[in-house]
Design a protein around this nucleic acid. Structure first.
Lengths: 217, 217
DNA sequence: AAAGCTAGATCTGTATACAGATTACCATAT
DNA sequence: ATATGGTAATCTGTATACAGATCTAGCTTT
């Protein structure tokens, strides 16, 4: 749909995700509405949607960009480690030549050093190509949401994408096992892939432990 | 908060859950607003909230009470079987005397043959007493939502609560293992507990295979 | 200087209004 | 009887308006 609310939602989501809007920053309906030149109703809708996605806290008074914490990160990755391998196991038997081909080309795309946002998008599509074949709409929706939330930690806490080399290797292993049609193997590789990203992120957060303060107004 | 939107949300949620509002039934903002004597704005809010919870479909035109299907049931239980044992494993080491005591009294409450809605509420609180000790807000939120969605299947597809006897036995096993402080055992019992409910529900749905049609209007 | 209080600014929840989109119904034509 | 077209009813998205709640800042009091 092409509503004002959807436009605002999409834009705000991106800005929260990339860290342009920092944790703790207040997002009042009025200010958002004014900034986008719409009335408060679509601004309100957008904030509610983002709150449901977990990117925004709908506090008592004003909505606020949600903070980050090592505890939440832990939780998000625990969920991903539980759900994505399950999705993988269910999907792999249905993955065919078409998916393998598209995954291969996405690997090339990622290897060509695109912007962070494009790299993350290609990465998400790579894994989604497997997941989609599981025929589990709800799980995929949940996974998309969890991935978005963890991607935010990458933007906020890791300036340069240090580790694309390791990730590329892991992706190729996953692709090979998928080609071979071994569900358990792909699932286990996926689980380790996720766990490795968790470790990577955790190390970075521990090095730079200060949770950013609310932006001064 | 004591807003009109929250009141409408709560009431509609209950009515969808118990089946008073049947799958496919259209829920227009206008009609909901009129019925509750509020303006369309809080009605709109309520429908959006319920849509985020998965109880309502926000179709192109009007919102509609979400349908049920064996495929969705499968998916919901797969998720619960993945998440709740994980939550259990994390929580059991922190479960103390207070929780055990409250769980025991909830078992009595359930054994006293309350109404379906009270039984389900006590049941949810029984398990929540464990989960809460895992200190995983996000997982608990997800679990609450999944439980609500599967409870709906109980209301819609199982008239009498046939199986409270089996459930009571399983609950007592869980309680004993929790008292003994064995995380892996409680987790495994919880997984089987969930799987058994899934089987039970699946058998009932297969026996009465017609998904209800939208209510005539 | 610290604590408390009050006026003003800001914000939210909700009602109402209007335009454009969608659907339903019914008459007419084939 | 079925297809077709048009009009009325319904619905949504959004703007605007208003009252009550919450916060802020500065003044007063001690």
């Amino acid at each position: 749909m092409d509503t004002a609310a959807a436009r605002v939602t999409g834009s705000l989501r991106q800005r929260v995700l990339t860290g342009e809007l920092k944790p703790g920053e207040p997002l009042s309906q009025s200010r958002v509405a004014a900034e986008y030149g719409v009335s408060r109703i679509p601004a309100r809708d957008a904030l509610q949607t983002l709150a449901a996605e977990g990117l925004v806290d709908l506090g008592a008074f004003t909505a606020v960009v949600r903070g980050t914490s090592i505890a939440e990160l832990q939780e998000l990755y625990e969920l991903r480690e539980a759900v994505e391998p399950l999705l993988t196991r269910l999907a792999v038997p249905n993955v065919g030549r078409a998916e393998i081909a598209m995954m291969t080309s996405l690997l090339d795309e990622m290897a060509s050093h695109p912007s962070a946002i494009d790299w993350l998008s290609a990465n998400a599509r790579f894994h989604a190509l497997i997941y989609m074949r599981a025929d589990r709409v709800r799980m995929i929706e949940l996974t998309t949401q969890l991935r978005r939330l963890t991607d935010r930690y990458l933007y906020l806490h890791v300036d340069m994408f240090g580790d694309t080399g390791r990730l590329d290797v892991e992706h190729r292993l996953i692709l090979e096992a998928a080609k071979a049609g071994d569900p358990a193997e792909v699932a286990e590789l996926t689980r380790r892939h996720i766990a490795a990203s968790h470790d990577f992120l955790l190390r970075h957060m521990l090095r730079e432990p200060a949770p950013q303060e609310p932006a001064p107004r």
